[in-house]
Amino acid sequence: MEFHRPRTLKNVLTHYCPGCGHGIVHRLVAEAIDELGIRERTIGTAPVGCAVLFYNYFDCDIIECAHGRPPAVATGMKRMLPDRIIFTYQGDGDLAAIGTTETIHAANRGENITVIFVNNAIYGMTGGQMAPTTIKGQWSTTTPEGRGKHGEGGPIRICEMLSALDGPSYLERVAVSSPKDILRAKKAVKKAFEKQIAGKGFSLVEVLSMCPTDWKLTPAQAVDFVNEKMKAVFPLGVFRDR
C-alpha cells in the first residue's frame, strides 16, 4: 500500500484551519487529475472564499475569478480550448448565492465543465456569516438567533435544483466527514472529470464539508454535524448520471 501526496498538489502547507474539509477535497480533486493523467491539460478556477488561495496548492494552470463567476469564466475557457479539462472549485456563497445565475446557466447550457462545489453551510473566509446553504436553526454571525427566525428562508439544495434542468450530465452529492464518505466522494469527483473527458457536458459534485472554526465546534464535533445535521437536510446521492 502506497499513499502519497498527489502530484497535482504542491508540497506546501495550506492556510486552512485545523479540521477544515477543503484539504480533503483538494486531495480528492488532485488524485482524480493524477489518475486520469490530465494535469498538463487541466485548467482550474479559483473562487472567492476560503479556497481563494487554491492556486498556491494546485500544480496546474489556474485562473482566479471574481466571486460567483467561475462558471462563466470556465465557459469562456472551455469554448476556446475544448480539448482542455476545465474545472471550477467553488464554495456555497460563490456558487449558490452571488453566482447562482452563472451556475444555473452553465448547467443549463450543458457546458462541458466540471464543478466541485464545497458546501459547508457557512461563509468561512469572512468569519462565519450565513450561507445560502446554512441550515434552519443554524447559528451564524448574521443569524444570531439561528437561521429562519427573520425571513432568511431555508437552505438551497443545489443538486435538487439543477436536476430540474436538461443540461447537466452528472450531479452527485457526497460528503468528506468519514472515511467511507471520502471513498465515495473520490469516485464521484473522478467520475465528474470522466464525464467532461467523454464530452457529456456539465458535471457537478456537491461535497458536504466541515468548517469547525466558524461552526464553533471541535473538528470531531464538526464531523458529527455533517453526519447528523447536514446529511439530513442535504441527502447524499446521485441526482443525474447520463
Binding site: 475569478c65 471574481a66 462563466a72 469564466v73 465557459t75 469562456g76 476556446m80 452563472e102
Partner: peptide, 25 residues
C-alpha cells in the same frame, strides 16, 4: 464562438476566461 450570456456580468466573465485562454475576444 458566440454565446448569448445569461447576463452582462456573465458575458464579461466569459471574456475574462476566453482572453486568458488566448483568444481575441
Amino acid at each position: 464562438v458566440f454565446i448569448q450570456a445569461e447576463s452582462e456580468i456573465a458575458a464579461i466573465n466569459m471574456i475574462f476566461g476566453a482572453s486568458a485562454a488566448g483568444a481575441r475576444c
